[in-house]
Amino acid sequence: MFYLTIDILGTIAFAISGVLVAMDKRLDLFGVFIIAFVTAVGGGTLRDLLIGYTPVLWMRQPIYLVTIAGSVVFAIIFRSKLKYLTKSLFFFDAVGIGLYTLVGIEKGIATGLIPIMCLALGTITACFGGVIRDILCNDIPVIFRRKEIYATACILGGGSYFLWRFFLKEEYAYLAGILLVISIRLLAVRFNITLPSVYKVKD
């Protein structure tokens, strides 16, 4: 129940971020739902295919479709309250990657993968829904933008989970990993922390 709750919260966060992007692009209702849907389940679908878990999770459990639909309705109804779209999108996206990173790691552990593979699976789960969203909306995906701390936040926060497990109960280690992913992403943008550039600086 604990892991299902985290998964549902991640679905809500990513679905709302998809709605915000779609509304910013002025898509119709069908377009808004599709963008919310692929943002919410795109990474998880790829994860399930990679580990051979088919049919994929959202096909097995209708609660995900209901959750996405409810999130779309909620975001549309309260869109006037979400007037700072850029800040809202950033927040929900950060929460989404934090939740989904640990969901993906847990799936890897349950499958019997080694920690490095679990970490890769968590990063894929967290990032690829947003990649699909941005491609469909004709934007450069955040994960590919130069110097963005995005996948790096997933790797650092997700990796910390394996350390926290030595000192905390599993649920607390799980939450600590989620909070670290979110914190790294928020602080990196707040204080303009970036990765080193591979490009030479022109004189």
Score class of each variant (00 low, 15 high):
3 Y>G: 00
4 L>Y: 06
6 I>H: 04
11 T>R: 05
11 T>H: 06
14 F>R: 07
22 A>M: 07
23 M>F: 01
24 D>N: 14
25 K>H: 11
29 L>K: 13
30 F>W: 06
30 F>D: 00
35 I>G: 04
36 A>V: 08
38 V>D: 05
39 T>D: 03
40 A>E: 05
40 A>W: 07
41 V>D: 02
41 V>Y: 02
42 G>W: 05
45 T>F: 08
46 L>T: 04
47 R>Q: 08
48 D>L: 10
49 L>R: 07
50 L>H: 03
51 I>R: 12
55 P>F: 09
56 V>S: 07
57 L>T: 15
57 L>G: 01
57 L>D: 01
63 I>L: 15
65 L>A: 15
67 T>R: 05
67 T>W: 03
71 S>P: 03
78 F>S: 07
80 S>Q: 13
84 Y>L: 13
85 L>I: 15
91 F>A: 14
94 A>N: 04
94 A>P: 00
95 V>H: 00
101 T>F: 11
108 G>E: 06
110 A>I: 11
112 G>S: 12
113 L>K: 09
116 I>F: 14
118 C>F: 05
121 L>W: 07
122 G>N: 09
123 T>R: 04
128 F>N: 02
129 G>W: 07
129 G>T: 07
130 G>V: 11
130 G>D: 03
138 N>H: 11
139 D>P: 00
144 F>N: 08
144 F>T: 03
145 R>T: 04
147 K>V: 04
150 Y>P: 00
154 C>N: 12
155 I>R: 08
156 L>T: 03
161 Y>E: 06
164 W>M: 12
167 F>H: 10
168 L>V: 04
169 K>I: 11
171 E>N: 14
177 G>N: 06
178 I>N: 06
178 I>G: 05
180 L>S: 11
182 I>P: 01
188 A>T: 06
188 A>E: 10
190 R>F: 05
191 F>V: 06
196 P>I: 10
196 P>H: 04
202 K>E: 12
202 K>T: 10
